[in-house]
Design a protein around this nucleic acid. Structure first.
Lengths: 161, 161
DNA sequence: TTATTTAGTTTCATATCAAAACCATAGGTT
DNA sequence: AACCTATGGTTTTGATATGAAACTAAATAA
């Protein structure tokens, strides 16, 4: 995995990456969202080493992104299924996918296309919006440090930052 | 970085992760979005080893997520600034942050709050929507493989996947 | 029953990462 | 000018994660 843990950081991004920031995690989640449920599915799709896949799957189960459930078709094996927490990562997956489509697309075009099933239309860009649905400009986004911040031993000297 | 490269994969998520999937990359981008511009800012904020920070910054510059520009205040040093590509990662950053706020928040609450500057309101969840702005249910999202897929030597046997 | 998948585990070589020490230059101080 | 400290690195070294291959036990298929 990694050497330094993000889990003690207060930042939600860091805390999220602690769960899904390993090299393969997000690709595994993507596959799960596309219907992969069994070890062999992930393995075939990703070309990942089996021991690494085992580790990543276990991490995701530990993090309650995936859960192991009995096979849906009555066989004895277990399957990996997204939890609600896992499904709730959809915006992350989609945002990554759309950014890639836009900026670093494969010469042959993207391998996966995200649509609105009910219309067959291409999904619009996932983007910050107001309650009204109106898309926001980045300039209107504020990212402010929350009030309490006892961790900061060093007084923020506002040194031209 | 890693051993196996994602860059030859056709999947846009993999290709995106090739740019921003390293352990610290997304946290560096987050800091850049919050105004960090100098080596020391990132270092102080992240507690990252300097050589690692150097590597990550160079990767991000190579990937055109950040660019080095002369200091705005007339000093000789250079600063790191988000490119358009980099700023366009905002939905990824926000989605990660919101997921973390919801599912794995720090006991003291999140350290950063994302707002709509023009109203001071809390930013609604970044989520897939129709052109109309209407929020979608995940069940209405289709993730389909695009047509051409010459890579697949193994005929998809549709083996209960 | 026997053969083949599947879902791992173990071992080992290699690649990547972080920590600490070191260094050159820029800017500040006297 | 002379000195001192902060900045932005690089180098070295040790720890950790990864991938490939071989192995195994259980589940499934023939």
């Amino acid at each position: 995995m990694k050497t330094k843990s993000f889990s003690d950081m207060q930042c939600s991004i860091a805390r999220t990456l602690e769960h899904v920031g390993s090299w393969w995690s997000l690709l595994i989640i993507r596959d799960a969202m596309m219907g992969a449920r069994r070890f062999k599915h992930f393995q075939a799709s990703l070309g990942i080493a089996k021991n690494t896949l085992t580790s990543r799957l276990n991490e995701l189960v530990d993090g309650e992104i995936l859960e192991k459930v009995p096979a849906a078709d009555g066989y004895k094996h277990e399957e990996y299924r997204l939890t609600e927490r896992g499904r709730d990562l959809a915006p992350v997956i989609i945002a990554l996918s759309q950014w890639g489509d836009k900026w670093v697309a494969h010469p042959d075009g993207p391998s996966t296309i995200i649509t609105d099933k009910s219309t067959g239309e291409h999904l619009p860009r996932v983007w910050p919006r107001r309650e009204t649905g109106e898309q926001m400009r980045l300039a209107d986004l504020g990212m402010a440090r929350a009030a309490s911040n006892e961790k900061n031993k060093r007084r923020p000297r506002d040194d031209n930052m």
